[in-house]
Design a protein around this nucleic acid. Structure first.
Lengths: 231, 231
DNA sequence: CCTTAGATTTCGTGT
DNA sequence: ACACGAAGTCTAAGG
């Protein structure tokens, strides 16, 4: 990993064209070949970058750039599909490199998957008498998060989101349309479940006869812990 | 901007929980308060980070961490909604700080906006006899990118995407449903336009009687240049 | 302030 | 490889 602090000007031509006037910035060159140009804000997002795979070549500035802007060196970073990131360096204030080695990597504890698993274990949270038939029930247009059956024996398709938005309702609608065409399943009703559900999603769901349920993640986790203590 | 290269272990608790075992990484502390932890890959994406506003405090490690892992210093980064990023430093290989000042910022030349503008200027690209009525025609559920009228005087609603996917078709469908309820507009037909349109989006559009058109951005730009030369 | 739509989205995962 | 869904998405614009 190479860290360069320099006054520089940057020009990107690719999926868009962008220009950064001369200013002092951090240029980060990683072992994977990626190059990113950071200002002292915008959190972790660089002003400009090139994702790997890409190649970097260093060249002399043309006379004009050298005289007008004091450019001493030009980096050309080029990706496979022709995108280019050109960094014109005028004054290098810092330049170091470090061997980091490969990272053992990140261990994540997801939320949506966990939410789905918890609801699969406690389907009655979504309504009295509901019982699990299957998780990730496959339809031709994708998997339904949970397939349940109610006390009357009718099927219930459940879409689980951490944050329920309009797209999720559209998705569940498509599943329901399809499943209700299957005589072996019909009638199938829908439940849209989420930790949060946006107002528009609530309205659209209700308008389409789909129930929506707010899920209390912490309470569900609590039930889970209670179970663990019992056994 | 502070650059630290150190062996460290990281623990994040917030919208998810994540853990990074001890390894050598770059820690980037920006003037905006943000902290990000980078490995030597994953392009510009950090392994872990905290977005501003947040506060950092430095403390001594507990005896256990110091003895077992050689931790010499612990950074606690806390956001206002209770998320915490804890960085346990074991060996600091590099630590420098630089004043960068505020960045003049990025000048972008967008794509989708430009595409919409070009199509507004050359609506016949979408079909013979089509003429522009209005860009960003407002409906109660959002703006239709382009409202056109065909040779017969019927309205045509156009949704423009750089990459057309199923969501875009859903969006246009909602607009069309709504507009066709208005006797002053009905009948309104739809055109889904994009530089690329995914197969599923094509199928869904066709299934709903919505035409789809692939747009040649470069050719449109060429037409634009030709116009400029004429005047 | 909330909501929506776009992003050089990026990043997995499954087919 | 392509396609689709999720992201600690983030971010800017509009009501």
């Amino acid at each position: 990993m190479r860290l360069v602090i320099a006054r520089c000007q940057v020009d990107y031509v690719g999926r868009l064209t962008a220009h950064l006037p001369m200013a002092t910035r951090l240029i980060l060159v990683k072992a994977d070949g990626s190059v990113s140009v950071h200002a002292d804000d915008r959190a972790y997002k660089p002003l400009n970058w090139m994702s790997p795979p890409c190649t970097m070549s260093v060249s002399e500035p043309d006379v004009e750039a050298a005289e007008a802007l004091g450019v001493t060196e030009v980096w050309q970073v080029r990706s496979k599909d022709g995108d280019t990131l050109q960094i014109s360096l005028a004054e290098v204030l810092h330049d170091t490199a470090h061997e980091l080695g490969i990272d053992p990597g990140l261990q994540k504890d997801g939320v949506e998957a966990h939410l789905q698993a918890l609801l699969a274990e406690h389907p009655a949270t979504l309504g009295d008498g509901l019982a699990l038939v299957q998780r990730e029930y496959l339809t031709p247009i994708g998997p339904v998060d949970l397939l349940l059956r109610d006390a009357a024996g009718d099927y219930v398709a459940v879409e689980v989101k951490r944050r329920g938005e309009i797209d999720g309702v559209e998705q569940l609608t498509r599943y329901l349309d399809l499943m209700n065409r299957d005589p072996a399943l019909s009638p199938v009703r829908g439940i849209f479940a989420g930790q949060q559900i946006k107002p528009q999603a609530r309205t659209l769901a209700s308008d389409r006869g789909i129930e929506w349920r707010l899920i209390d993640y912490d309470a569900l986790r609590g039930m889970d812990n209670a179970d663990e203590r019992l056994f």
